[in-house]
């Protein structure tokens, strides 16, 4: 089970965290992996904290529980840091990626003593520049792919273009903006 990467997403209803988890499952699947992408269903309303999960593995995945000791955590909404213990169980060899305009030094004290790597990404600025609107899920998806290293940049971009072409078949005009958001985010996370 050691070659399974486990990722937990924290977002708010309406921000696309569930969609991002399903997209990550999609692209990882395309690279030949065994995947799981699933949301934890609670009250479905805009703005309520939601959790979604990914498992990505070279082996068949049999476990069906939620993820309690993730390798990576993605925080799609900075305001969750107060309400939710986002790093609960997070392995210290892993990392947390937070959508924020703040620096790592400013965010770390809010992470309740988490000792592992912390990455920040300003998904709002990237999204508004690339898409003209605030959709944090594409930048956050690129950020977690970069940080986790589940696939390389070129493979990721190729697979995402295919995935968007399918997802946005009825509005192809948004594909380029989303691709730009992915590229900007991928290169911004360091």
């Amino acid at each position: 089970m050691n070659n399974t990467v486990e990722i937990r997403w924290h977002g708010r209803g309406g921000q696309g965290a569930k969609t991002a988890a399903l997209l990550l499952a999609d692209v990882a699947f395309e690279t030949g992996k065994f995947v799981q992408g699933f949301p934890e269903y609670g009250p479905e309303r805009m703005g309520a904290p939601i959790t979604a999960y990914n498992r990505i593995s070279d082996k068949e995945i049999r476990v069906h529980s939620n993820i309690y000791e993730p390798d990576y955590v993605v925080v799609v909404d900075e305001s969750l840091l107060e309400a939710v213990d986002v790093t609960a169980g997070l392995r210290k060899e892993g990392a947390v990626v937070v959508n924020t305009a703040k620096s790592v030094e400013e965010i770390r004290p809010l992470l309740r003593g988490y000792e592992g790597d912390v990455y920040v990404i300003d998904a709002r600025t990237i999204s508004i520049e690339a898409l003209g609107r605030y959709f944090p899920n594409s930048p956050m998806l690129a950020a977690i792919v970069k940080v986790s290293g589940v696939m390389d940049r070129e493979t990721f971009m190729t697979e995402m273009r295919g995935s968007y072409a399918h997802k946005f078949a009825s509005k192809p005009e948004v594909i380029e903006g989303n691709m730009k958001a992915l590229e900007m985010a991928f290169d911004a996370v360091n």
Partner: peptide, 12 residues
């Protein structure tokens, strides 16, 4: 099949 656990989870 199990609600949400398999019905809403994407898997190979």
């Amino acid at each position: 099949q199990d609600g949400f656990i398999t019905s809403h989870a994407v898997q190979n």
